[in-house]
Amino acid sequence: MNMQMLTELAVKGEIRELELLSLEGGFYIARVRLEHTAMTLLDEDAKPMRIGSTTHLRDLLQRVPAFPCVLVQHCVHDEMCGTREGPIGALRIPFTLAQSF
């Protein structure tokens, strides 16, 4: 999914949620969830767009109608130490595309 498609879907109100996935190396990628599928936000070279922060994402989407967003970060410490039993879920922190001052 490119920025044009993301904008068109946002205008139609078809975006359920954007997941900003925290990855090793200090950057993020965006996964856009629709009703029956999820797609990664791609750059002009059709590669996953590397996003530096929530502020960077807000700047990219400043002209796009707002939709729900969540920052997703996996807890590698729990996975490495293995101290908890059962499935280990990601930390999910909702945020808004509105500029915060």
Rank of each mutant, 00 (worst) to 15 (best):
M1S: 08
M1N: 08
M1F: 10
M3P: 03
Q4D: 15
M5N: 13
L6P: 08
L6V: 10
E8K: 14
L9D: 11
L9Y: 14
L9C: 07
A10K: 06
A10D: 03
V11L: 10
K12C: 00
G13C: 04
I15H: 04
I15V: 04
E17L: 08
E17Y: 07
E17D: 08
L18Q: 08
L18D: 03
E19L: 04
L20D: 06
L21E: 03
S22A: 04
S22G: 01
G26I: 02
G26E: 07
G26S: 06
G26K: 03
Y28E: 09
Y28T: 07
I29F: 01
A30S: 13
A30I: 10
R31F: 09
V32A: 04
L34R: 09
L34Q: 01
E35G: 02
E35D: 14
H36E: 05
H36D: 15
T37G: 07
M39C: 13
T40Q: 06
L41I: 01
D45S: 12
D45K: 15
A46T: 06
A46Y: 10
K47T: 03
P48Y: 12
M49Q: 15
M49I: 09
R50A: 11
R50D: 06
I51H: 03
G52E: 15
S53W: 02
T54C: 13
T54K: 14
H56D: 15
H56K: 00
L57S: 01
L60W: 10
L61T: 05
L61R: 09
Q62V: 04
R63C: 12
V64I: 04
P65S: 04
A66M: 10
A66G: 08
F67K: 01
P68F: 06
V70C: 06
V70F: 11
V72P: 05
H74I: 08
C75Y: 03
C75A: 11
V76W: 11
V76G: 00
V76K: 12
V76H: 14
V76N: 03
H77F: 14
H77Y: 12
D78K: 13
D78R: 12
E79Q: 09
M80F: 09
C81M: 15
G82Q: 06
T83P: 00
T83R: 09
R84V: 07
R84K: 07
R84M: 07
R84G: 04
E85P: 01
G86I: 09
G89S: 08
L91E: 14
L91R: 13
L91Q: 14
R92N: 02
I93T: 11
P94R: 07
F95T: 12
T96S: 15
T96N: 05
S100Y: 13
F101V: 14
